[in-house]
């Protein structure tokens, strides 16, 4: 009696192992599929783990209800009736039942738990996983901006219920006058600032007061003492300090004299 009960416990454990393996493989596939989607639209990769974990939990929970001897019977029809009879009568005892239990134990021991696995299904999943892994890697280079996170947030900001939840909205527009050189300044777009006051932190060494008139002395210092040369030209740059200009001017003069001496 205890032997047959022990056998049924073992069978249920085998069924559980099979369910665990299949559910895990399916979760891995689900992870890669979601990861492809996430990387395509620049979503955080952790979402893929969460999705796969949720899928694993839900599927495992549903499959746990299927842990019954009938699952083993379905995969082994040759001993189905014998097994179901033994399972339904495991609490009874008589001569015939004792013999039946012995026979069931003998036959079940000869069967492998591999009979529970559908080879085709497992093979397909094992082949699919590396394919999906490679595909995920390849797809991760691409981005679809239409649905990037910023765009999602912008879109959500249009909806009133999200007011104040997704950060401050900045008024403004993007214009393109086509006047600027793309190579130096990047994209041919200038952001037109709106009415709002904005704080810009800049390099302190920068002369930012655009209303101050040009310093004619500074200009004269630059070019007054050094004759114009065809060889070297000094280009005035507002970011350079007066000391630097003098130093550079000295260097330019020395170089020009060398060239004249060579001639």
């Amino acid at each position: 009696m205890t032997n047959i009960r022990g056998l049924f416990k073992e069978l249920k454990y085998e069924i559980f192992k099979n369910i665990l393996v299949v559910t895990f493989l399916r979760s891995v596939i689900a992870f890669f599929i979601f990861y492809m989607f996430a990387s395509l639209f620049d979503l955080w990769y952790v979402f893929s783990f969460l999705f796969a974990a949720a899928y694993f939990s839900v599927r495992l929970y549903k499959q746990m209800k299927r842990i019954r001897i009938k699952v083993f019977e379905e995969h082994n029809p040759e001993i189905k009736e014998m097994l179901s009879t033994a399972a339904d009568n495991q609490d009874k005892e008589n001569i015939v039942l004792t013999e039946l239990f012995k026979e069931v134990i003998e036959k079940v021991r000869k069967l492998s738990s591999g009979t529970l696995i559908v080879p085709k299904e497992i093979l397909i999943m094992i082949i699919l996983i590396p394919i999906l892994a490679v595909a995920s890697f390849e797809i991760s280079y691409f981005r679809i901006d239409a649905l990037s996170q910023d765009k999602i947030i912008d879109g959500l900001q249009q909806i009133k219920i999200f007011d104040g939840l997704l950060g401050e909205k900045i008024d403004g527009d993007i214009i393109d006058d086509g006047l600027l050189d793309e190579d130096i300044f990047g994209e041919k777009k200038i952001a037109q600032l709106g009415d709002q006051e904005i704080n810009i932190k800049m390099n302190l060494g920068f002369e930012t007061d655009l209303t101050r008139p040009k310093d004619e002395d500074t200009d004269q210092i630059q070019f007054k003492d050094y004759p114009e040369s065809d060889d070297v030209e000094l280009i005035y740059d507002t970011s350079v300090s007066r000391e630097n200009i003098e130093e550079d001017a000295k260097l330019a003069r020395a170089y020009n004299e060398k060239i004249r001496n060579l001639k």
């Binding site: 009736e81 179901s84 009879t85 033994a86 399972a87 339904d88 009568n89 009874k92 008589n94 001569i95 015939v96 039942l97 039946l100």
Partner: peptide
């Protein structure tokens, strides 16, 4: 007597 002892499953 043995005939009566032959087990039968619930499905049958």
């Amino acid at each position: 007597k043995l005939t009566r002892q032959i087990p039968i499953s619930n499905d049958m």
